[in-house]
Simulated scan of single mutants.
Amino acid sequence: MQKNKLLIILGVEGTLGSFLANSDDIDADILGIDIYQTTKNKNLKYYLDCDFKDRDKIRETIEKIPVEKYQQHLVVSCIGKFAEPTFNSTVFEEEKIYESIQVNLIGTSHFIIGLLKKCLAKNIQNRVIIVGSAAAYVGSRDIGYGIAKAGLNGLVLSLSKSLSSKKAVIIGVNPGIFESTMAKGVSVERQNQAVESTHIKRKGRIEEIVNFVKYVAFDAPDYLTGSILNINGGQYS
């Protein structure tokens, strides 16, 4: 039986997106989007592949989303591409910066704005949760990643202001370091530095992050629009 709400998860194959999609208490049909051609996630009603570096693919994917079938859309963007430190050798690899900014900020922004445009044209209610990172405040040795995550805060504020008279609520969530595939790809030294910069002296648990994102997506008041919410154990340096 089709539900009234459609939860659209960008980056559904990542740790956060996958845990969110597999939550037992989500009262919505789920559409997952990621770069892979197929998915093993059985909780999805729909799955679409999208390369967030490709503008044409982004447009094509947006067109395939069945927005008209639902009264409300909940969009959670978990897009995240992380690389090694930009200055990890005598060679400055600028291509990594361009690619990180393209995926984490430009492609994500393009997708969200394009989807909102399509939904608003049909007078459909929307709530968008943009998951960023504590890197927006503390920076990152992957310079492109740090730039992109700071830019997502600006996207939240600008979209909320621009769409204040429309049926759209835009909220940002910035996690600190938490248990994830991405975190495992970071050197132990960098992980330990991030953990030590928290007040609680540990990584976040994936359940803590997912439960918070679900609250913001489904239960938080509309008056939170334009807010940037941190769940980082005190990681501010």
Rank of each mutant, 00 (worst) to 15 (best):
L224F: 11
I143G: 02
I130L: 14
A136M: 09
D29I: 01
G226I: 07
D142L: 02
G114S: 12
I228P: 00
Q2W: 11
K149P: 07
E13I: 11
S23P: 03
E99S: 14
L152A: 04
K81I: 09
S164M: 13
I143D: 05
A148N: 05
E60S: 12
V131Q: 02
A121K: 15
S180C: 11
N22V: 07
S237T: 13
V213K: 07
N211W: 10
S164H: 13
F19P: 02
K69M: 08
F111W: 10
S109G: 09
D49V: 03
F92E: 13
I106K: 08
K203A: 08
L157S: 13
I106H: 11
E13V: 02
V169Y: 06
G32W: 07
K167R: 13
K167H: 10
S158F: 04
T90Y: 15
L10S: 02
I112W: 05
D219N: 14
I147F: 11
D49R: 09
I97L: 15
I101N: 04
F82P: 04
K214D: 05
G144R: 05
N126Y: 05
T39A: 15
L6D: 03
A21E: 03
L155C: 05
R127V: 06
H110G: 12
D27K: 07
N230E: 10
